[in-house]
């Protein structure tokens, strides 16, 4: 756990209780004064793991016959540096290659061009330093809820009592208390996705890779899952790369939103969110900054020539 404790001496890592820096000149929104938007892409003022930094370095990916220029170009010339401990949303229309970028980061596929770097090394294969949450909960039906949550530590051969203690914490954090002994097929879609979250988070990976995890849920369940995600994130400090095609979801969750163009996916807009935390869904939707940012994103997604 030591790695998650923000050092007091670090200028980047402030204690979570200090609150964001406040710009006295900024107008007051419903959520109180806005933090200074000084353009620095520093990590958010909460605990974070320095191993959680991610960099996409001129990444290109082509499916099919890449040698002869055939196949489908999913991602082209994508570069972005993601600060440790931040929550970044990759936003774009279906088929824009955002899931491809996640697969490259998770290590399920190798980029045909460029490199994906995490911590200090290039990604070559999947690994437990990157937790993955898929759109499908992908629970193992032959294991109970608790068994699904402890899957990672069980595979790594961690001691049983240590694993159970951790599992208890994440069962509580994800609101699954009382469901430990249920079979996965006895749960609703939202509950299944809670198990998937707890399963990915129990090993406390410095990086979390999430591929539209709430895409299949109904609107109400989705909002409560987003709140749950923010809650767990603030307590653990992982870097989250979250793929979605839902603009409101990105606005509610993200520190930073990377808007992608249709295929081949390129970076269209790189937007830092001015919205303060903690965020309250009902207040956020009437916040003028929220509306302005949403307008900018919608325009970027509608017009490919909007690309800068």
């Amino acid at each position: 756990m030591a790695a998650f404790d923000a050092s007091k001496d670090s200028p980047l890592a402030m204690s979570c209780c200090q609150g964001p820096k406040v710009n006295p000149a900024a107008p007051e929104g419903l959520n109180g004064p806005y933090p200074v938007d000084d353009g620095s892409f520093g990590p958010a003022p909460r605990p974070f793991n320095p191993k959680g930094a991610v960099e996409f370095k001129e990444v290109g990916h082509r499916y099919g016959d890449s040698k002869h220029g055939g196949g489908t170009e999913a991602v082209a010339d994508f570069s972005a540096k993601i600060a440790a401990g931040s929550l970044v949303c990759l936003l774009g229309p279906s088929g824009c290659g955002k899931s491809t970028l996640l697969n490259l980061l998770a290590g399920f596929e190798k980029p045909t061009k460029g490199q994906v770097l995490v911590g200090e090394g290039a990604v070559t294969k999947p690994g437990p330093d990157r937790g993955v949450v898929f759109q499908e909960p992908n629970l193992l039906p032959w294991r109970k809820v608790l068994g699904n949550i402890t899957l990672g530590p069980d595979l790594a051969g961690r001691p049983k009592d240590e694993t159970l203690a951790k599992a208890k914490r994440f069962v509580e954090l994800t609101g699954l208390t009382g469901f430990e002994k249920h079979a996965p097929y006895e749960l609703s879609g939202g509950m299944k996705q809670r198990v998937a979250l707890a399963r990915a988070w129990i090993s406390e990976p410095p990086i979390m890779v999430m591929d539209e995890p709430f895409g299949a849920l109904d609107a109400q369940t989705r909002v409560s899952m987003q709140e749950l995600l923010l809650d767990v994130w603030e307590k653990t400090g992982a870097t989250i790369l979250f793929v979605t095609h839902d603009v409101d979801e990105a606005l509610f969750l993200a520190d930073r939103i990377l808007v992608m163009t249709p295929r081949p996916g390129r970076l269209a807009r790189d937007l830092q969110s001015p919205l303060p935390r903690p965020r309250i869904y009902e207040s956020l939707v009437v916040d003028p900054d929220y509306a302005l940012l949403k307008r900018e994103i919608l325009l970027a997604m509608r017009q490919p020539e909007y690309v800068i």
């Binding site: 998770a106 399920f108 294969k125 999947p126 990157r130 993955v132 898929f134 193992l140």
Partner: peptide
């Protein structure tokens, strides 16, 4: 066996 389950295993560090 779905690709999802195999990817899940790989992501969790299964041998």
């Amino acid at each position: 066996v779905g690709l999802g389950k195999l990817r899940l295993g790989a992501a969790l560090g299964a041998t």
